[in-house]
Design a protein around this nucleic acid. Structure first.
Lengths: 294, 294
DNA sequence: CTAACTGATAACCCATAGTTATTAATTATT
DNA sequence: AATAATTAATAACTATGGGTTATCAGTTAG
């Protein structure tokens, strides 16, 4: 009474189920026959089901025993695999890297990163989630994320940052707007338009840069709408509700009725950086560090 | 050296993984802290992987530990179920099917399913539990559930989904409300009312659909109350605190002072789907698969 | 009707899970 | 700065129960 099932019971059971012979099974397990008999009996009591029919000379599985045998085969395999996998993860050969990113990173660096690391470590899995700068920093600090792709100039103590991609800014206009590649020379040609921008709490560095681009040219933009989704911004521009300024690489990957005009002769660049925790303990991350240059 | 992993190790590991505190975990297991420490250490040696990071004051799971925990949760559930199932088979029953469902499924498909399968397999037992979409998905992944009745458009890798019932939406009003079957023509007749809806974390697909119904007709509803229970929602409507939009079939099975008015001329439908695990090993489920059309 | 099998019982033994007592180290409190 | 209160790990001891040997009670050959 009050006993617990253990894996020992299961392997003894499988040995008997295989041999259908207590002494032979005991030999195979390198234990004595009475010990085996007692463990099987105990197992039947714990489960509350007869597993073998002993008709005085032969041993056979009951219906319940047949079912149990099939399941235990599966369970043992699953446990074996899990243990091996656990060891592999510990050694850093396999595992998962959790990545957060701003939408614009999806057009450029993330696919490159995945292709590159996948060649050398095909068994490393990735989980990808689009989130704001701020949430990424928080998630990395809480160890919910391994890498973040952000637009920030500084990060809190304990985190590291490294720029990975430098982009220009482009003006986004409705297809039918009068300005085009040839006539667009300076940003203050649109100083009277309404502006649609990414929310400042999605990426304040981006927001500040847009402001400085305009202020350098002597005007303060009227911001009529803000959004956290590039697609939304493009839709609003397409609908004629205003113009937008976004990193140039966002022009790929969307199929919308807007046109991109790179803004000439401005010093501001959209810098995308990767951030991570200094003492990150994810073994999978350690493996790809050198490849990514962290 | 030469030790074997036992289920004991696994349950001790799960307790520590849960508490992240050796003494508290030991208390929960009704054993002493040193005994627990030693078993965990032994377990780490057998597996050949560090499972916890002990930095002198805090205990945390390693990456490998996280993985192992998730798998052991599944393995324990599977063993528990297998043992219960073995006992049932021994007693001459065919087995048990565990079903999770959203409240609204109880009005339509679940009773039908039970009647249908009970005719052919009178010895199959059912356990039924009302739970949210999200919890059902989790429970199926962990092998705590065989079938789930949900309102979802997608399910994670490894699960299957099939729609089983398509319902219209109805407006729920207090009995004394001025609108009736004849005067109610368009949903924006109630655009100024407060809305009482199912919580979005109970069923986000439902929530989004209600929103789109309203937005299609040009208004954003003011949501004054949210609940996970249909009965609560009806009570609040009856009390004059607002109106609700729910799947039409919910009007059966409750006896409350509200009236249902089917919303005319909208494309949105309330789709109820059944979900299950691709490689579910419950033999009772295999028996009824053809009957249910999985 | 022995002889050779089978698995189940009984009584003993000893490996090891679990115990108590203590240590080493860190953090909180005064 | 000193003390108290934490934490997990070590060390040495205890005792549960898994494994042992010896034996029994049936069953089937020869």
């Amino acid at each position: 009474m009050g006993y617990q099932l253990e894996l020992r019971h299961f392997s003894y059971f499988l040995a008997v189920a295989e041999e259908l012979h207590f002494r032979k099974a005991a030999d195979k397990l390198f234990i004595s026959q009475p010990g085996l008999s007692r463990q099987i009996k105990q197992m039947e009591e714990i489960i509350g089901a007869r597993l073998f029919i002993r008709d005085k000379r032969n041993v056979n599985l009951t219906e319940a025993g047949h079912y149990l045998r099939k399941e235990l085969d599966y369970i043992f395999n699953h446990i074996d695999f899990t243990v091996r996998q656990t060891r592999l993860i510990d050694k850093g050969n396999e595992g998962e890297i959790r990545i957060g990113f701003l939408g614009s990173a999806m057009q450029t660096v993330i696919p490159q990163l995945l292709v590159k690391t996948n060649a050398d470590f095909p068994n490393i899995k990735y989980s990808l989630e689009e989130m704001s700068n701020h949430l990424q920093v928080e998630a990395i600090e809480k160890d919910q994320l391994d890498l973040g792709f952000v637009r920030l100039s500084r990060v809190p103590e304990g985190l590291k940052i490294k720029s990975v991609y430098t982009d220009t800014f482009s003006l986004v206009l409705p297809k039918n707007h009068h300005l085009n590649v040839n006539t667009f020379k300076r940003i203050n040609q649109v100083s009277e338009e309404n502006f649609i921008l990414f929310s400042s709490n999605y990426s304040s560095l981006y927001y500040d840069k847009i402001m400085s681009i305009c202020e350098d040219k002597g005007f303060t933009p009227t911001v009529s709408h803000k959004s956290v989704h590039a697609q939304t911004i493009f839709k609003l521009v397409e609908s004629g509700l205003g113009v937008a300024i976004v990193p140039t690489s966002l022009q790929y990957g969307f199929d919308l009725g807007v046109k991109f005009l790179e803004i000439p002769k401005i010093p501001q660049k959209a810098v995308l950086s990767v951030i991570w925790k200094e003492n990150n303990r994810n073994p999978a991350l350690q493996k790809i560090r050198s490849l990514v240059g962290l």
